[in-house]
Design a protein around this nucleic acid. Structure first.
Lengths: 127, 127
DNA sequence: CCAAGTGTATTGTTGTATTGATACACATGG
DNA sequence: CCATGTGTATCAATACAACAATACACTTGG
């Protein structure tokens, strides 16, 4: 598995380990990471993105305790077969809900017309 | 000015002082806080939200160095008359742009249909 | 004038978060 | 068997955020 599946911004105020966990949660929920699929090793990810291996390990550990990943000793991490794999659109939507709530809050503080916001987001989604 | 204009979540991982500054930036850009209007005193805000006055002072100080607020010695902080007051919809939109970009990224990782996301956001905006 | 209200500088403390360097235990494959 | 590849436990070093308790300079209203 290629280390490039993960997008990381080391300079972001968002902690690196949380960027990784959040991303894994979404990619696994959508099935972009299939059940049983092997993840890139901590050293691969760390080398590719020029970050510390322990930071990746911490993210993997959290993802495991959350039931997203399973550890295969000596081999690596694989996507867990638990209650997680490839969820329905409804379940995936709930992962986006908090972020959307915050979007709405900021839009209202900015007094932006709903049309304007929706049109812009539609454009961004059309990639 | 009432201390309740500011919404603060002390338990959020987002630092309190940044919650305040970000919020001020939006409220001022929209004109919900009019140019020249007085802000609630640091002690009022701190008392109302049960946080430390110096945390509020720090936020006000940052907002001032950003040109959002002006300090009137002995009186308090007022909304600056600078290049900031009540911006156009286009300018306000740019304050939301980074957040919308992130929304689009997460939606794509979740493989959510654009329609679903847009419909949900439209509902959240219709308050 | 002076009490009461502004913001702020200062110093110290506490708790936590984040990252880093190193060494270790384990499993695999030739 | 052993080099190589896993993940990770451990300890350390910072940095950050918030709080606490003062003291200070300033303005206003009675």
């Amino acid at each position: 598995m290629d280390a490039s599946i993960l997008t990381i911004h080391p300079a972001s105020p968002e902690p690196i380990y949380r960027q990784i966990v959040d991303q894994l949660r979404r990619l696994i929920a959508a099935g972009q990471l299939a059940v049983g699929e092997r993840l890139p090793s901590v050293r691969d990810v760390a080398g590719f993105h020029a970050i510390n291996p322990m930071t990746v390990s911490r993210a993997y550990g959290l993802a495991e305790s959350e039931g997203l990943l399973e550890r295969q000793r000596g081999k690596g991490m694989v996507v867990a077969s638990g209650p997680t794999g490839s969820q329905s659109a409804r379940e995936r939507m709930q992962l986006l809900e908090p972020h959307l709530k915050e979007t709405a809050r900021q839009a209202q503080e900015l007094e932006l017309p709903a049309d304007t916001v929706l049109r812009r987001l539609k454009h961004l989604l059309g990639n």
